[in-house]
């Protein structure tokens, strides 16, 4: 697998480590609603198809990336810097 890091360019999969589902929003840290927190920490949708996920460019620039990757064909559909994705996502 090769991922096109927005900073470093196309790099081998071995340089990256998977950091989980990027479709979740972290609950309000002040909340202790166990149902909401259990869901956030433990439950995932096992998507067949295009999946949005975080990857860390561990052996390169060490930036976190948001990658859309097809779990069936392994095609990388899109890549963005995580911090820009998250900043733009906030209301």
């Amino acid at each position: 697998m090769r991922i096109p890091c927005p900073f470093c360019g196309l790099r081998d999969g071995v340089e990256f480590s998977y950091q989980g589902d990027a479709n979740r929003t972290r609950p309000d840290p002040v909340s202790v609603d166990q149902t909401v927190w259990n869901d956030h920490v433990f439950n995932r949708v096992n998507t067949r198809g295009v999946h949005r996920e975080f990857w860390l460019h561990n052996h390169g620039c060490r930036a976190h990336l948001v990658v859309e990757r097809n779990t069936v064909t392994h095609e990388i559909v899109s890549v963005a810097l995580a911090r820009q994705f998250v900043l733009e996502r906030k209301p």
């Binding site: 480590s17 995580a82 911090r83 998250v86 900043l87």
Partner: peptide, 14 residues
């Protein structure tokens, strides 16, 4: 290190 970097990039980039 990864734990801290994750939270700074993906949860609290502000």
């Amino acid at each position: 290190m990864e734990h801290l970097e994750f939270f700074l990039d993906c949860i609290w980039p502000d």
